[in-house]
Amino acid sequence: MKDSRDKLELVDIYKTYRVGPVTTQVLCGINLEVAAGDLVSIMGASGSGKTTLMNTIGLLDHPTSGAYIFQGQNTAKLKDKQLSTLRGRHVGFVFQSFHLLPLLTALENVALPLVYQGESRSQMKRRALEELEKVSMSDRVNHRPDQLSGGQKQRVAIARALVVQPSLLLADEPTGALDPDTANDVIVLLKKMNAEQGVTILIITHDPAVARQCKRQLQIDNGQLIENHVKAAIDRESFVPDVGADYFAQVTTG
């Protein structure tokens, strides 16, 4: 199982964007600790800073101030090369619009992260096939993304994210481009991976139905995180999906 190094910790994270004279505060003092193997959802309205938070956690973006401890290291001090290595080995990404490379087959897409790990070709193929098997895509290995449905693409994307056996999987609106049934399949798959492989999963979503299925739920509003302790309360309510963040606001305040 995962050791304590696999927990991640954000301490007082600020992120400011400066475009000309306009300064935008996107993240305002984020404090967050995520235990290894957790399944966390982060909800928030558009422009609330949830994507910036994910990019920061995924080592794609640098915070303006604050400390981010990942894999036992303060990432603020790391150079691009080390960040890339850390990201490649320990972080898997799943995006709303899948972001598969159109010229590569499903197999090649899944194997791509292994290229940057310097794996041998046979090893790459073996592991990519294994991963495609886990997401039930074994019969589509030589298909190009344009020959796959949305749900299938997202399965391939999940396989790609997990092929390096990362400690953390970041999913940015993984169901945003899918119909409800397919969306549910994807969430079920993510939950299964979390349960079976112990990978920490952070799902960014604005779909309460998705958030509801996570062990821990957070909400981001104006660059600040709010822990949502009312999961039980929501569960008791006769839940109507797709009402958005306003519903949460009502529940928390009400």
């Binding site: 691009d80 090369k81 890339s84 290595t85 990201r87 490649g88 490379l101 791509l112 992260p113 940057y116």
Partner: peptide, 16 residues
């Protein structure tokens, strides 16, 4: 640009 960004997200270094 998107492809480059995806590769970077998957662990590609600038040099790669």
């Amino acid at each position: 640009r998107r492809e480059i960004a995806i590769r970077r997200a998957l662990g590609a270094r600038r040099g790669d």
